[in-house]
Measured scan of single mutants.
Amino acid sequence: HNGKLCKLKGIAPLQLGKCNITGWLLGNPECDSLLPARSWSYIVETPNSENGACYPGDLIDYEELREQLSSVSSLERFEIFPKESSWPNHTFNGVTVSCSHRGKSSFYRNLLWLTKKGDSYPKLTNSYVNNKGKEVLVLWGVHHPSSSDEQQSLYSNGNAYVSVASSNYNRRFTPEIAARPKVRDQHGRMNYYWTLLEPGDTIIFEATGNLIAPWYAFALSRGFESGIITSNASMHECNTKCQTPQGAINSNLPFQNIHPVTIGECPKYVRSTKLRMVTGLRNIPSIQYRGLFGAIAGFIEGGWTGMIDGWYGYHHQNEQGSGYAADQKSTQNAINGITNKVNSVIEKMNTQFTAVGKEFNNLEKRMENLNKKVDDGFLDIWTYNAELLVLLENERTLDFHDLNVKNLYEKVKSQLKNNAKEIGNGCFEFYHKCDNECMESVRNGTYDYPKYSEESKLNREKIDGVKLESMGVYQILAIYSTVASSLVLLVSLGAISFWMCSNGSLQCRICI
């Protein structure tokens, strides 16, 4: 991952900044910058967002509201009850120091605090018919004063009620008058409520006091790749198909172990950190130390980045220098085999997901714990399936590479015959000098055995068991695999060879 928040398929997220979902939807004055928000790819909250409900109280069923919003990608904020005409018999300019803005008392931008007009609070009834052709999110509140005197001074009615009804919602609220500790300079409380109004449905408000009335509502448009994440990451000019709280993932790998919460087309989250597919040879310690064997393909974004291909070729060293050249036929066979294998694994496992966190309130801790156990169970199954699949494929890959290298080895052996000696570690020792032209003939299969047989015969008789390297004779190393990324691999195959001279070296080696 890149540690950044990015656009998702070209669409920017909605960053709530210092506000949370509650503050944004109710219209906390400190969240005025969010009022123009219309569309987004996903919503970003920060872990310690401080601006929620400015007048103390709870947004009821907040967790369910977050779940609903996680599939919303755009909205239209509109005046559901026009301020100047909807409440002619009531005062609608209630403000509070708890919702101060720029040093002055204020109130929510989407709600109206209705109080008595003169000395009376006549029963009010108002309704709205949803003609938007889509779901409408309606929010309101109920004020709970701290004393009967406060109730009387604001609403005149000691036994007030609030009723809200639609086809799918029907509740009646009565204020709970009680002494409470002071929070944000208030002994009173406000509880906030919401409902989704279906197209064509009607919502009716009736009250004799204590109503925090809707002013603006939201017509919602769903987008199934949307979601809500909690993150401290910063926004950058970048684009992605998959976003996590820790950063964007741009990967076609089937798995990731970065974060379980994802938005967009994302690899499946697994616990494993070692889900690797081999593309090189079986481990040979001396070669492995030099980083030549054991190439791997990573299938977990965050564990290993991208696929690494092994390729086969020849390396030689003689009086004229040293050089490398790919054996294109065996390399292409290996590439085709690995590509098919990788595609097979991805096809089997690479279903892209959006995974969002589930919200539970403080009273639902047991449910949250149960949900976590269920999620953990599914996660263990996914991890096991992934590891088992790759384990089985790896064994076949190792066998496949062994065969490829063996074929190259036999190709060289059949040409050199007794003009060189096998020394048991995949290397041959020449009994004759071999210049670049000679080396090329070994690589392309045109090695002239009779041409060098007499010199080889004489050297075999002279050496008589002495280690060949100390006599200045020449080696050919018969097994060799270097490691390159897919891009470098293609470039390498396009070149005939490249040279690395070893000044004054008397050794001649050709490596497979």
Rank of each mutant, 00 (worst) to 15 (best):
C242D: 04
G264D: 06
F378I: 09
N436H: 11
Y447V: 02
Y384H: 10
V345E: 05
T262W: 01
A386N: 15
E364Y: 05
P245C: 13
M500P: 05
K467A: 08
E395F: 04
E265P: 00
L403M: 15
C242M: 04
V442G: 14
I335R: 00
K406L: 10
Q475E: 13
T244V: 05
M439Q: 15
G294Q: 03
D448H: 14
W499N: 08
Y431G: 06
R290W: 03
N369L: 06
A326V: 06
M439W: 02
W382L: 05
M439I: 14
R460G: 02
K406G: 11
G291M: 03
L403K: 04
Y480G: 08
S470F: 12
S231E: 00
K365L: 14
A420I: 01
K348H: 13
G264L: 06
T397V: 09
E301G: 02
Q288T: 13
L458R: 10
K268R: 15
Y447D: 07
F293K: 01
D309H: 06
L398Q: 06
G313L: 02
P285F: 00
L392A: 09
T339V: 03
E410C: 02
K348V: 14
T351S: 12
A484K: 02
S502G: 10
C508D: 03
H401L: 04
F293P: 02
C434I: 05
K348T: 12
E422S: 11
F400R: 04
E461W: 06
N369P: 02
N425R: 12
Q288A: 11
M471L: 12
E461Q: 10
K417E: 04
V483S: 03
E461T: 11
N371I: 15
F360Y: 14
G445Y: 13
K274W: 01
Q256L: 02
I423A: 08
N362M: 10
I287M: 15
F293G: 05
E387A: 09
T240I: 03
E393N: 14
I510L: 14
G280T: 07
M235E: 06
N444C: 08
M500F: 00
R460Q: 13
P260F: 07
S231T: 15
A386P: 02
Q320K: 07
N239Q: 11
A233P: 00
M277E: 04
C427Q: 01
G302Q: 07
L379M: 08
A248K: 00
Q352I: 04
Q317S: 14
T383F: 08
G472P: 15
A326Y: 08
E359I: 14
S322F: 10
